[in-house]
């Protein structure tokens, strides 16, 4: 696992703006894994992405439903797989991962074996001074390309 790049955001507005910039650069079928402690900004990040994808509905936690589907410029699938006990549970999540939309998966490490190889990993960390560090990693060239594009846009 390589660290491709990282960003510092000072507040919610900046986290949201970064998510919007990332969303602009995503193609159909992109799978994003989102890891971070409570309060690190996962929901803010998801909301920023949804805004950029033209989704008008409010985006809230999919903890109880596991998946929430939104229709925007692209379909947006917001997942929280915390309640999934093992990757082999018969949920059919692969249909989303290999589908036509953007998948944002919280607690993704719980189902890592079934995630596509080119999954982009985002780690949101709270720094001691209260800012957030957002780390993008992947084993796939997709992450490196995304980082390059983020740094030049």
């Amino acid at each position: 696992m390589r660290e491709a790049c990282s960003f510092i955001t000072k507040n919610e507005r900046e986290t949201r703006e970064l998510a919007r910039r990332i969303a602009r650069l995503l193609d159909r079928g992109a799978v994003l894994a989102l890891e971070g402690d409570l309060g690190a900004g996962k929901t803010t990040f998801a909301q920023g992405m949804a805004e950029e994808l033209g989704i008008e509905q409010p985006v809230d936690s999919p903890t109880f439903t596991i998946v929430k589907e939104y229709e925007g410029k692209l379909p947006f699938y917001h997942m929280d797989v915390y309640r999934v006990d093992s990757p082999e549970e018969e949920l059919g999540l692969e249909e989303y991962f290999y589908g036509e939309g953007i998948c944002l998966v919280e607690w993704a490490s719980r189902i890592e074996p079934i995630l596509p190889e080119d999954t982009l990993w985002f780690h949101l960390k709270v720094e001691p001074n209260g800012t957030r560090r957002i780390l993008i990693t992947s084993t796939h060239s997709r992450a490196i390309r995304l980082c390059k594009e983020l740094q030049t846009t």
Partner: peptide, 27 residues
């Protein structure tokens, strides 16, 4: 009938999940 995975495959996936080729980063 989704067709159950064989036990062998389920075990293989579990093994993958235990970090042998894990991509997950501890944070």
């Amino acid at each position: 009938n989704y067709l159950q995975m064989t036990e062998a495959e389920a075990n293989w996936i579990k093994k993958q999940g235990n970090g042998e080729t894990s991509h997950a980063q501890k944070s």
